[in-house]
Design a protein around this nucleic acid. Structure first.
Lengths: 309, 309
DNA sequence: TTGTATGCGTTATCAC
DNA sequence: GTGATAACGCATACAA
């Protein structure tokens, strides 16, 4: 049986309230008793029951990080920096994943309302973006911050990249590298991130006076460049259209090989900074500070030029 | 203010105990009252306070997964499968990371004793392998299972790969590919995984009648092959010794380029299976079933041959 | 500086 | 079938 405050109180011949105060370094307890209590606690191997403490204080000092999975840098990088920030404030960050499983996802959102954590960071994939539970949660004042994608219809604070600007810059660089026809694979209406990127492409194209075409357009033999959110989107599209992929503007990563002469521009998001900012916002929210709802944009880390030579 | 059992009891004009039973589908409650209670719970937006429930039942239905980080497949892959297994049993798995930070690590281990979870899976990196807290935890009967590395001096159940066999097989394949001098970078005494791999190399070398040398040995101009736990270990060694790395046997992954004519054998561990098995063991442990202490070996997923052509 | 009393929200053991 | 009642372990306003 675990050692409780009572056991300690008995061992020290004082009241449980005194023990409680002593262990929490309350200034009003005599140095001698405090020392005795602490010594006894160590001797008996006392460890507070946080379930009990949470029950009475109503706070758990715990933050959850909800994501679909752990593998993608989009998920684990913000989780990593957020964990550090949260820890600096004396709280713990716990990561929970749902693997895109609808039931699992609902269950996790339910857990948030069950007093196991004080707030949550949410990497909003498809499931979160539909769920009513999220709406109710927020309506009930539960501290919530979106990372990356978000729901524009809710005034939940959100952290994302400068997607529009980054997409526009991708266009400019690709055009400087010879592109004349821009294939826009960003899916407007898909989610807020895709929306922003698509808008960025259109804006840049307009400035440059170049045509933007969809995935199914007829293309010139050369000088087209495809823009997509990730390498596999671009590659998948090229495969379906039986095209040789040699020019692209993408986000986050490009691992695959490129044929000689080809060039890819890759905009790397600063997931670490996003996680840190999101954690800061959440901590403010949990502290009761006024946090403006709406989107925060974090500059991308940079744009890399990758060639096939 | 959150809705409590009492609010529900008042709204339904029954006792809290009846509400409690109704919500948990206790067979002794009248269908009519159950329906009414459930309807009212939905209407008022009731959500149980799990801190309170945990306090009285003594169980949290929660499992923690402790790791140094999330990025490495060694960490997130077992976490992923373990999460699924755990979820199937109606429990939740939460991932907590310490980033190699000593204080953070200690804090997490402390948390385990504070009734926030019923058991834990531990990816034992350097910190875990030293900590006394882990020993005490286990001594107090806290359900614990090691994944990958473990402490041989504790009878905590552990799941690892068939490291010795895999290392031996790496040697055999590399020798078949022309190796005659085997450079053993596996560090015996480092940890249980390195130990096993080092032993595997020595065993295979003995069978083949070939010499095993350490990282600082004088090498023939050619026909040596280096064995290491990961690509970066092998590359780091080659860099320090100003050697051109063209033959290696490693574990888990090889991403970098290889000069033409070179060949690397890579033993892929089955992290997913390891996570699943570890979860099963932990669940048994938590269910009070007798679980034999000691190491379980999961076969590696396979050995890939990578060439620089 | 310490003790007393009460309550946090829930489950469980009794009665009825 | 349902209702009192007593825990669970801890924190805290209030007394002393």
């Amino acid at each position: 049986m675990p050692v409780t405050l009572r056991d300690l109180a008995n061992a020290c011949a004082v009241d449980t309230s005194t023990v409680s105060r002593a262990l929490r370094d309350d200034s009003r307890v005599a140095p001698a008793t405090r020392a005795k209590v602490k010594a006894e606690a160590a001797r008996l191997g006392y460890h507070p029951n946080l379930a009990a403490r949470n029950l009475v204080t109503g706070r758990t000092h715990t933050v959850w990080f909800l994501a679909g999975g752990l593998e993608a840098p989009q998920n684990h990088q913000p989780a990593t920096t957020a964990a550090k920030r949260v820890r600096e404030c004396g709280l713990d960050l716990l990561v929970a994943v749902h693997h895109g499983d609808r039931a699992a996802h609902e269950r996790l959102l339910l857990r948030l309302r069950q007093h196991l954590c004080d707030g949550a960071l949410v990497i909003a994939d498809g499931l979160d973006l539909e769920s009513d539970l999220l709406v109710q949660l927020h309506a009930d004042g539960f501290p919530l911050v979106f990372v990356d994608r978000h729901r524009a219809d809710l005034d939940i604070p959100a952290v994302s990249s400068t997607n529009a600007e980054a997409a526009a810059e991708l266009v400019h660089r690709c055009v400087a590298a010879g592109a004349t026809t821009l294939v826009n694979l960003f899916n407007p209406g898909g989610n807020t991130v895709e929306d922003a990127r698509s808008a960025g492409v259109r804006l840049a194209a307009e400035q440059l006076g170049l045509p933007v075409v969809g995935p199914d357009a007829t293309l010139p033999a050369t000088d087209w460049t495809v823009f997509a959110s990730c390498e596999s989107d671009a590659r998948g599209w090229a495969r379906r259209r039986a095209l040789r992929l040699s020019r692209a503007g993408v986000f986050d990563a490009w691992h695959g090989d490129l044929p000689p002469g080809s060039v890819v521009h890759c905009a790397d998001q600063d997931f670490a900074a996003m996680g840190a900012l999101a954690a800061d916002l959440l901590l403010d929210l949990m502290a009761g500070k006024a946090v403006e709802p709406g989107l925060r944009l974090v500059p991308i880390a940079g744009i890399r030029r990758i060639t096939g030579d």
